[in-house]
Design a protein around this nucleic acid. Structure first.
Lengths: 207, 207
DNA sequence: AGATAATTAGACTGCATGGTCTAACCGTGT
DNA sequence: ACACGGTTAGACCATGCAGTCTAATTATCT
């Protein structure tokens, strides 16, 4: 959690800091990211940075939570209205909505992904990150369990394995999308995303 | 490529160096791996290390190629006898064989995976890695292309994305199986692996 | 205006990194 | 005995890192 002072900064200053941080974390992950590069890019002195944040992990958590806020809200809202009929299509819709939401700031997307890619060692060394970011992976498990209750997600494989596979495919797709972000337009990317989601439903679904 | 001198070292010394390197690269990736830790673990002085290798990238490439050797051989051999009928079943068989091969040295497996996880920036900064590790990353692609020629792999998604998805699911499954190695017997694990492979064929195969 | 608190800049610390370099070591051939 | 090439150890270098500290600056209040 950043110091309350940070929240009282002018909005554009906050945005500049968080954007610089997101770009750096998206490009290099948490460990590989350079605090100095972030500060240089944001035109923020080191003294000021440590006046607003506890440490590097605090900057990371603040950045990720800032951009992930709307995403998490969408997932929670989605879970309530699920039925056996609309389960996979709602899934695909939500996925497409993500693309649209992050179309103009892929680096924000990359920063969120960097949080999911944190190694166990990094999490152990920074318990604050667990507290702030730990909810994401649990969300997929509850979602798939709901699918099992509705009878549309297979039950002949362990739930945690299904979740791991889902996250892995999602991650692979996202990486591919980010790598081709500039070369393809949003419609093509959305279509690819829908096809992958449809394929994923054949892997994770019953029959 | 390591200096020819390295190949003339006693086999157990070579093995010690490569195992230390593989453990470090598996745990931290290429960028995050510490050369000093590898040398400490392998009881190798820095002078000796740079007498045998050009640089860190050389150690990495040598390590990965060493352990990937049999894997690549198996893949290449497998590709020749493929038909439309036996494509996916051969796949599942090969998977089981691979897993048995690496069951006792997961860190070797992790090192190979680290090569597949190299970022574009890392590859740009170390052209030697591209030359050395290209075939490792290309193996799955050629396999899937063969499947497309046989008409059993879908062609409505880009080949590199299909390869990325395959590797991701394979990776997730490997992690899960390794994590439950002690709790479950070999038959259950094999059955899980076959079910995942079957699901994967529904994702990657023509509908 | 003057005192006090909030804020900033950036030099500095301690440490780790990949890579270089030199001096010594050792086995072998003469 | 000596020299020479292959081999080794580890001190050393420049660089970058996260994080600390102090002195100066700016805003706020009386």
């Amino acid at each position: 959690m950043p110091r309350p002072r940070f929240m009282k900064l002018p909005a554009e200053k906050q945005a500049a800091i968080l954007e610089s941080a997101a770009r750096e974390f998206a490009a290099h992950g948490f460990d590989g990211a350079s605090l100095n590069r972030i500060l240089e890019q944001a035109q923020l002195s080191k003294g000021a940075a440590y006046y607003y944040f506890d440490d590097k992990a605090d900057i990371f958590a603040t950045t990720v939570l800032h951009y992930a806020g709307d995403l998490i809200g969408g997932l929670a809202e989605m879970t309530t209205g699920l039925t056996a009929d609309n389960f996979w299509s709602t899934f695909a819709d939500q996925y497409a909505a993500q693309f649209a939401f992050f179309a103009d700031k892929p680096w924000a997307f990359g920063a969120i992904k960097a949080a999911g890619r944190l190694s166990l060692r990094e999490l152990e060394e920074n318990p604050a990150l667990v507290a702030s970011l730990g909810e994401v992976q649990q969300g997929v498990v509850t979602l798939l369990r709901r699918g099992q209750e509705l009878g549309v997600v297979r039950t002949d494989l362990p739930l945690d394995l299904l979740a791991a596979i889902f996250i892995a495919v999602d991650d692979a797709n996202d990486r591919w999308v980010l790598a081709h972000w500039d070369a393809l337009d949003i419609d093509e990317l959305t279509q690819v995303g829908r096809r992958v989601m449809a394929g994923l439903s054949r892997l994770l679904g019953v029959q």
